[in-house]
Amino acid sequence: MTEHHFSRRVGAIFSFLVFVVFLSGCGGGSHQGQPGWTKVDLTDVQPVIGDWEGTVTKAQDILPVGSVLLRIHENGTYQFVGQSSSDVAVGTGHLEAQGGELKGDTEIRVLRLSLFSHRSKPVLIVDAAHRLTGARYHGEFTKAK
């Protein structure tokens, strides 16, 4: 194989990988419109008050970043603690209803919570972005037992 042919092939593979990463990042993990998933409009925090547990992935990563426990209070505040194999994260903030979802905005992160019904069980979808690093995260949570 010539050097020119090899370079073109590496370029094509790289372009394909960038395209796949782009698609996976834009997918956002939304279940809206998928069979068996029904979006529940959130006009306040009442339907999601309590403890939730789930797994969070960092955008473009295939493997889960870690497990997260999320607690949402009646006054709209939330607390979370997350743990991966190499890190621990904690945080708090306030949620407000906007457009059928809950949104939070702090100095460190912005997040959007969407509630779905799947197989007659509530599933809370959380999409977040870290303001300082630009890292994006996607989580799927179920009510803690």
Rank of each mutant, 00 (worst) to 15 (best):
I108V: 08
D127T: 03
G36C: 06
R109V: 13
H94D: 13
F116Q: 01
D61E: 08
L111C: 10
G54V: 01
V123E: 00
T55P: 02
Q98W: 07
V18Y: 09
F141K: 00
G139L: 05
G99R: 05
G91I: 06
S120F: 09
Y137N: 02
T77G: 04
R8K: 10
R71S: 14
D87R: 05
V10W: 06
P47S: 01
V18E: 02
G54D: 01
Q60H: 13
K103I: 14
D41F: 07
F141T: 03
R112D: 12
E107N: 08
V88I: 11
R109P: 00
S114P: 10
D87G: 04
E107M: 11
I108P: 00
F22A: 14
Y137F: 14
V88R: 08
L17C: 14
W37P: 02
L70C: 09
I62A: 15
L113D: 06
D44Y: 04
S84F: 02
R8A: 09
T142Y: 04
T38H: 07
V81E: 07
D87Q: 12
H118F: 11
S120M: 04
S117V: 12
Q32W: 09
T38K: 15
P64K: 15
G139P: 04
A12E: 10
E101D: 14
L124Q: 05
V88G: 04
K103W: 12
E53G: 04
P122G: 07
G134V: 00
R131M: 05
K145N: 11
G33D: 12
V68C: 01
Y137I: 01
V68S: 04
E107Y: 05
V48I: 06
T77F: 09
R112W: 12
H73K: 13
I125P: 00
